[in-house]
Protein backbone atom coordinates (compact mmCIF):
# COMPACT_ATOMS: atom_id res chain seq x y z
CA UNK A 1 0.00 0.00 0.00
CA UNK A 2 1.38 3.37 -0.98
CA UNK A 3 0.49 6.58 0.67
CA UNK A 4 -0.21 9.47 -1.66
CA UNK A 5 0.58 13.04 -0.70
CA UNK A 6 -3.03 13.92 0.29
CA UNK A 7 -3.14 10.83 2.48
CA UNK A 8 -0.03 11.95 4.30
CA UNK A 9 -1.46 15.42 4.89
CA UNK A 10 -4.71 13.88 6.08
CA UNK A 11 -2.79 11.75 8.56
CA UNK A 12 -1.03 14.86 9.80
CA UNK A 13 -4.38 16.64 10.16
CA UNK A 14 -5.81 13.73 12.11
CA UNK A 15 -2.74 13.61 14.31
CA UNK A 16 -2.94 17.31 15.07
CA UNK A 17 -6.65 17.12 15.75
CA UNK A 18 -6.26 14.07 17.91
CA UNK A 19 -3.46 15.60 19.93
CA UNK A 20 -5.45 18.76 20.35
CA UNK A 21 -8.54 16.98 21.60
CA UNK A 22 -6.59 14.68 23.85
CA UNK A 23 -4.82 17.66 25.35
CA UNK A 24 -8.12 19.47 25.88
CA UNK A 25 -9.38 16.50 27.81
CA UNK A 26 -6.37 15.88 29.99
CA UNK A 27 -4.49 19.12 30.47
CA UNK A 28 -5.58 21.23 33.40
CA UNK A 29 -3.55 24.37 32.95
CA UNK A 30 -5.44 27.17 31.20
CA UNK A 31 -2.47 28.43 29.22
CA UNK A 32 -1.73 24.94 27.96
CA UNK A 33 -5.36 24.55 27.04
CA UNK A 34 -5.00 27.60 24.84
CA UNK A 35 -2.01 25.94 23.22
CA UNK A 36 -4.03 22.77 22.75
CA UNK A 37 -6.72 24.77 21.01
CA UNK A 38 -4.06 26.22 18.75
CA UNK A 39 -2.94 22.72 17.82
CA UNK A 40 -6.53 21.93 16.93
CA UNK A 41 -6.76 25.05 14.79
CA UNK A 42 -3.53 24.23 13.01
CA UNK A 43 -4.95 20.88 12.08
CA UNK A 44 -8.04 22.52 10.62
CA UNK A 45 -6.00 25.05 8.69
CA UNK A 46 -3.93 22.28 7.20
CA UNK A 47 -7.15 20.59 6.18
CA UNK A 48 -8.40 23.77 4.53
CA UNK A 49 -5.29 23.98 2.40
CA UNK A 50 -5.56 20.29 1.53
CA UNK A 51 -9.19 20.76 0.54
CA UNK A 52 -8.23 23.69 -1.68
CA UNK A 53 -5.51 21.59 -3.29
CA UNK A 54 -7.86 18.68 -3.92
CA UNK A 55 -10.68 20.79 -5.35
CA UNK A 56 -8.37 23.06 -7.34
CA UNK A 57 -9.54 26.16 -5.49
CA UNK A 58 -6.32 26.97 -3.71
CA UNK A 59 -6.95 30.74 -3.82
CA UNK A 60 -10.22 30.40 -2.02
CA UNK A 61 -8.68 28.01 0.48
CA UNK A 62 -5.94 30.48 1.25
CA UNK A 63 -8.35 33.28 1.93
CA UNK A 64 -10.37 30.96 4.14
CA UNK A 65 -7.26 29.95 6.03
CA UNK A 66 -6.36 33.58 6.61
CA UNK A 67 -9.82 34.33 7.93
CA UNK A 68 -9.65 31.37 10.28
CA UNK A 69 -6.26 32.53 11.55
CA UNK A 70 -7.65 36.00 12.29
CA UNK A 71 -10.74 34.69 14.01
CA UNK A 72 -8.72 32.22 15.99
CA UNK A 73 -6.23 34.83 17.07
CA UNK A 74 -9.04 36.91 18.53
CA UNK A 75 -10.27 33.92 20.49
CA UNK A 76 -6.75 33.11 21.70
CA UNK A 77 -6.19 36.71 22.80
CA UNK A 78 -9.49 36.74 24.67
CA UNK A 79 -8.61 33.44 26.28
CA UNK A 80 -5.26 34.82 27.38
CA UNK A 81 -6.90 37.93 28.78
CA UNK A 82 -9.35 35.88 30.79
CA UNK A 83 -6.56 33.60 31.97
CA UNK A 84 -4.62 36.61 33.23
CA UNK A 85 -7.65 37.87 35.13
CA UNK A 86 -8.24 34.42 36.58
CA UNK A 87 -4.62 34.23 37.70
CA UNK A 88 -4.98 37.58 39.45
CA UNK A 89 -8.20 36.61 41.21
CA UNK A 90 -7.54 32.99 42.04
CA UNK A 91 -3.74 32.68 42.02
CA UNK A 92 -4.16 29.48 40.06
CA UNK A 93 -4.66 28.40 36.49
CA UNK A 94 -5.73 24.86 37.27
CA UNK A 95 -9.16 24.01 35.81
CA UNK A 96 -10.09 22.10 38.95
CA UNK A 97 -9.58 25.30 40.94
CA UNK A 98 -11.86 27.28 38.67
CA UNK A 99 -14.82 24.99 39.23
CA UNK A 100 -16.84 26.87 41.81
CA UNK A 101 -19.90 27.03 39.60
CA UNK A 102 -21.22 23.54 39.58
CA UNK A 103 -24.29 21.40 40.22
Amino acid sequence: MTLTFPDLVLIAVMALFGIGLYALLTIRNLIRIIVALQVLVKGVILLIILAGYLTNQIGMAQSMALTVIVADTIVAVLGMALAVQIMRKKKSLDTSDIAELKR
Binding site: L24, T26, I27, R28, A99, E100, L101, K102
Partner: peptide, 14 residues
Protein backbone atom coordinates in the same frame (compact mmCIF):
# COMPACT_ATOMS: atom_id res chain seq x y z
CA UNK B 1 -28.11 14.23 38.13
CA UNK B 2 -26.69 17.44 39.49
CA UNK B 3 -23.33 15.71 39.80
CA UNK B 4 -23.12 15.66 36.01
CA UNK B 5 -22.66 19.40 36.20
CA UNK B 6 -19.07 19.07 37.41
CA UNK B 7 -18.02 22.62 36.68
CA UNK B 8 -14.60 21.41 35.44
CA UNK B 9 -13.71 22.57 31.95
CA UNK B 10 -12.18 19.26 30.89
CA UNK B 11 -15.33 17.38 31.78
CA UNK B 12 -17.37 19.89 29.81
CA UNK B 13 -15.28 19.17 26.73
CA UNK B 14 -15.55 15.48 27.47
Amino acid sequence: LRYTQTGVLNWNIF
